Amino acid sequence: MLTSKQKKYLRAASHNIQPIFQVGKAGVNENMTTQINEALEKRELIKVSILQNCFEDNHTVANEIVEATDAHIVQVIGNTIILYKESEENKEIDLP
């Protein structure tokens, strides 16, 4: 679980990151979670964009991704989810 200080640090670090995944009307599927997990291993911190045609609630989508990838939700703001997962091989971010 991330502390509020760690979340604040990660929010600041994610400011310049562009979303690399989009969740549409099909919702979250197994292929998408596999790709998100691989991206988290490479980058540790990613953004996921939720499109307007997605019928699920943003927090529901975030929780589905977290359950499938064991990542941490840094923030759900608008239609963007910020996710963090500590990398086993490509550790770059040192949390306070």
Rank of each mutant, 00 (worst) to 15 (best):
V61A: 07
T34I: 11
D57T: 01
A13R: 09
E38Q: 13
E67I: 00
A12Y: 01
C54H: 05
N63P: 00
V28Q: 03
K47V: 12
I36G: 06
E92R: 02
K91N: 06
A39Q: 12
P19I: 05
N63W: 01
Q52C: 11
G27E: 10
M32V: 04
E64D: 10
C54D: 14
I65N: 06
V61D: 10
N37G: 09
D94L: 05
I17P: 03
E67T: 07
I82F: 02
V48G: 14
F21M: 04
K85H: 04
M1W: 05
S87M: 05
N37P: 00
Q6L: 06
Q18I: 15
D94T: 12
I36Q: 07
K7L: 07
Q18H: 12
L83Q: 08
A62H: 08
K42E: 13
L83G: 05
A13S: 14
Q35D: 02
E38N: 11
I20H: 09
I36L: 06
S87N: 08
V28H: 05
S14I: 14
D94N: 06
Q22W: 08
Q35I: 02
K85W: 01
S4A: 15
E67V: 00
G78C: 10
H15D: 09
A71R: 02
V23T: 03
I65K: 07
G78H: 09
K42T: 09
V74E: 11
N63C: 00
Q22T: 04
K85T: 07
T3W: 10
V76R: 09
I36D: 10
Q75Y: 02
A26L: 13
T33G: 01
R43L: 15
K5C: 03
I73T: 11
I93P: 01
N53R: 12
N63Q: 08
I17H: 10
P19R: 14
I20D: 04
L95I: 04
S87P: 02
A62W: 00
L51P: 00
E41A: 11
V28W: 04
A26V: 03
S4L: 15
E89P: 00
P96H: 12
A13L: 15
N31S: 10
K8S: 05
N29K: 03
I73S: 07
I81V: 03
I65G: 04
I46Y: 08
E64T: 12
S14V: 09
E44W: 02
Y84Q: 07
E88Q: 10
A12P: 01
N31P: 00
